[in-house]
Design a protein around this nucleic acid. Structure first.
Lengths: 363, 363
DNA sequence: GCTAACTTTTAGATCAATCTAAAAACAACT
DNA sequence: AGTTGTTTTTAGATTGATCTAAAAGTTAGC
């Protein structure tokens, strides 16, 4: 056999098998093969088997790109988060992944680092790739008009964790308001009168909901001590804020924190002041990241179920893609207070993880 | 105006603007518009401006899917990691993202959860989406033949952090061997004689390199105490292993850990035993995750620079895509021992983060 | 004015699928 | 045999870009 039978073909070493090749091999038309691939009931059983055999024999690989060009779906979703390095988002992305995978979808991930400009670039790029929809955790300072813009682009958009647009929108997140109230109730039940709230960056829904929960709870329990410290939400912020608070007089006897990172920082700050978290000052975090059960003392935390939020968000997006005109939905997961040692129960080395699980959903 | 002028058109409300539309608007051919889009020097300045104006005027969106069908690139990369919920991978993905973004690339992310079967499914799905290449952190138990298979698929593949194939392959990771040696040297310098190594799952390169570093270092320093405990690599494993070790006689005076999670667990275990990390037993971790500087005591750790590894891996993949036949490369970043309080310096509340930074690269 | 040598522009094929509308095959009735 | 009605199959147009090879337009040289 002559090696140079096809002179200029060395580029195409990975000559890909197409519908045409299968059609030829099976002795049918391209159209029939296409129908078989899409599991159409139109094609006769016998033909179906014959074609499927050829598909295997030739090692065919479905070309989603080509299919997307003619059809209307790309089976692709864009996911934009603002801090992928945070373990909370790791778990959330894992949940998204799981839900999408079940439906044959695949996701583009982008990290806006809380910059609206980066976020904008990513959204445009995803549009060029014609994703079917977007899961958006809006960056700090996102223009509320963005959601309408995406809608005009004909792109299904589900806001996650935070929302910036006016009411009729798709959203998946946790009920932060309720979570903070649960934490406050628990602290009041333990006899605390001076409870501070630590952290929260600025004006998006996730922060507003927490603060509102804090203020309403104070009012509900008729507590007069009120101390709400704004900050970014890192460990270091936790250290700084608790240090400042404990120098005040009167100092709080308990703090509820914007997230677990701030709470870990607060506990560290207390220790550096020679105080014992859970004894000298109760600490409650938010999110219940894995580490919460393994700190010293173990951290009481408002569990927000990131994996479940990711799953719900992805499912909602798939629903919206299937039915673009359907009514907008808000999936808000009920948080659950995971009680451990940092809020006063103070049983040093016991594993106080409760076995029961409850995650309510309501539209 | 009659609303039903176009009877069955209500589906196409998002009638997309194409090259043809721009061509008509600007009074040139589709080919010319295509050339303008790709910034070809062939087209005359005047025409270029005219076309660019039309592009803006009509709000054109480049359709990468269509371009990919005819051209050979999709500007798309697949990334497969085994534990996205781990903060190390969060940082790594952020680095990948940054490097890809500079080149107009976008990435699919998938989480294998260390399951070869899930990994396989993801790779097949990415193939259907015709990604230009893959960044693969191989799952535990990956068949070494997989890399060849990917090669046969004509897909650029860069292994990251771990590698499973036979020598000529593309790889980006850290020099774990060197990192462990640095940690051992430091401990020996501080006078430690009984040093244990904690954790490592099984038979892939990342674990083998660490263990080999440990063994060679023992030999080099002529230490006779040798204790290497296998385990998965979570906090809980750290707690369990240190508890077991401290009950032995003689107990070690220092431990080097597979990663920071194990190290945090080891410190927690020591505290639960009433011992002080850094005083009763030195602890060194690997990775230098953000939390390391904010634990009590702060953790000495072998910094492996996940963000930089991500960037390097992505750049290497882009190089391979541009030149598929080029020589395979290994980018191995030099780790740096970040010395803090958990290995004996024991200055309780000081911030001992060193200001100098050094990250060497060698092929 | 004519040819040669550029510089620009373009028509039409192509990529790999889907979709539409019609043709072919087959069975079931008068 | 002819009509009708299903069930299967298919040809050919279509999607939105790129690519090739050729055409059209410019400029220069003699």
């Amino acid at each position: 056999m002559h090696l140079d039978a096809l002179p200029h073909q060395n580029q195409r070493d990975t000559a890909s098998v197409t519908l045409k090749d299968i059609a030829a091999h099976a002795g049918v038309s391209r159209s029939t093969v296409s129908l078989v691939l899409r599991e159409s009931p139109l094609v006769a059983e016998q033909t179906r088997l014959k074609v499927q055999h050829s598909i295997k024999a030739l090692g065919y690989v479905y070309n989603r790109g080509a299919a997307a060009l003619r059809g209307s779906r790309t089976s692709t979703l864009g996911v934009v988060v603002y801090d992928i390095a945070n373990p909370f988002f790791g778990a959330m992305v894992a949940g998204i992944d799981a839900a999408l995978n079940r439906e044959g979808y695949v996701s583009f991930l982008a990290n806006s680092e809380d910059s609206p400009a980066r976020q904008q670039r990513f959204l445009e790029r995803m549009r060029e790739h014609s994703v079917d929809g977007i899961l958006l955790c809006p960056a700090e300072g996102t223009d509320p008009g963005l959601i309408d813009t995406l809608d005009n682009w004909g792109m299904a958009c589900v806001q996650v964790l935070r929302h910036v647009a006016e009411p009729p929108f798709d959203y998946a997140g946790a009920n932060f308001h309720q979570g903070v109230c649960q934490a406050m109730d628990h602290l009041v039940r333990l006899g605390h009168q001076r409870i501070a709230f630590l952290g929260g960056h600025s004006e998006h829904s996730a922060t507003r909901e927490r603060w509102q929960g804090y203020r309403e709870s104070l009012e509900h329990h008729q507590l007069t001590y009120q101390r709400l410290l704004r900050s970014t939400v890192t460990r270091r912020d936790g250290v700084d804020m608790i240090t400042q608070l404990m120098a005040e007089s009167p100092a709080p006897t308990a703090v509820v924190c914007h997230n677990d990172m701030v709470a870990f920082g607060a506990m560290l700050g207390l220790k550096r002041l020679g105080l014992v978290p859970g004894v000298d000052c109760a600490v409650i975090g938010t999110d219940d990241v894995e580490e919460a059960s393994l700190s010293e003392p173990s951290l009481t935390s408002i569990a927000t179920h990131p994996y479940a939020i990711g799953e719900e968000a992805a499912r909602l997006a798939l629903r919206r893609i299937a039915n673009p005109e359907g009514a907008r939905e808000q999936v808000v997961l009920a948080p659950r207070l995971q009680i451990r040692d940092s809020c006063g129960a103070a049983r040093p080395t016991s594993d106080s993880t409760l076995p029961n699980r409850a995650a309510g959903t309501h539209a």
